[in-house]
């Protein structure tokens, strides 16, 4: 029993160390985060132009615009998360450390989750102001939808970036691989957000939330299993 527990402790220490390292790098430069947040808000403004000045149209399109802004800005964060290591040749030494490789993925996942989570909070607040969306009554459920959507987005984003960032043409490859895979998350998150903002008369949000939970569980497991194959090649 003690051995099992100490192994679990080892995993957790590795995960924490990786996440902490990534977040510290990010915190010290800040350039990445500021740029990504600015891009997210710029995309929102452009959506405002595309959808016209009509307040009702803007309000209806708000959930879709918000999620796409987070998606487009988030994609930059995923490739970045491996870039520092690739530039300094630190990935190979990192792989040589003893212990399970999936902990590297979990660590990066947690760091990216925090990064994209913060981005999401800022973009959502900006979007509510720009698109004149009132705080919905069911705001705790909205927060749950945002969290579940972020988990799905970041899990696949971090996973595909581990390949795309090490290939030629990484800028185009990551969105090409990632966006079609994210269709269920985006649909579910957009529809649930839309239903919750508009009082959810049809009680649709529940079904979408269940789908988000299922998607998150399936892909958190699948990416952890596949990561070992992807990172060693």
């Amino acid at each position: 029993m003690t051995r099992v527990r100490s192994q679990g402790g080892d995993h957790w220490r590795r995960i924490r160390a990786i996440a902490w390292k990534d977040l510290t790098t990010e915190r010290r430069s800040k350039a990445g985060f500021n740029a990504v947040v600015s891009l997210g808000i710029t995309i929102l403004v452009l959506f405002g132009f595309a959808l016209g000045p009509d307040a009702q149209a803007l309000r209806d399109a708000a959930p879709g615009a918000l999620w796409l802004a987070v998606l487009f800005a988030g994609v930059l964060a995923f490739n970045r998360s491996y870039q520092v290591e690739l530039d300094t040749g630190a990935l190979e030494p990192l792989l040589l450390y003893p212990g399970a490789r999936w902990t590297i993925f979990t660590g990066k996942l947690l760091a990216n989750m925090l990064f994209v989570g913060l981005l999401l909070v800022i973009v959502v607040v900006a979007g509510m102001v720009l698109f004149a969306v009132k705080v919905p009554e069911a705001w705790p459920t909205v927060i749950a939808v945002l969290a579940l959507g972020t988990i799905g987005l970041v899990t696949l984003g971090t996973f595909y970036a581990s390949m795309a960032s090490r290939s030629r043409a990484r800028e185009v490859l990551l969105p090409l691989l990632l966006f079609p895979m994210l269709v269920p998350v985006l649909l579910a998150a957009m529809q649930a957000s839309k239903a919750l903002i508009g009082a959810d008369l049809m009680l649709e949000a529940g079904a979408w939330i269940k789908m988000l939970i299922a998607y998150d569980i399936i892909f958190v497991l699948a990416t952890h299993l596949a990561f070992e194959h992807v990172i060693e090649a």
């Binding site: 996973f159 390949m163 269920p184 579910a188 979408w208 789908m211 998607y215 596949a226």
Partner: peptide, 20 residues
């Protein structure tokens, strides 16, 4: 890896779009 994840996603995409 991409092939396996893509195939896993097929039924989920199908369900989500059908609901949509």
């Amino acid at each position: 890896a991409v092939g396996v994840l893509g195939a896993i996603n097929v039924p989920i995409v199908w369900m989500s779009v059908r609901w949509w």
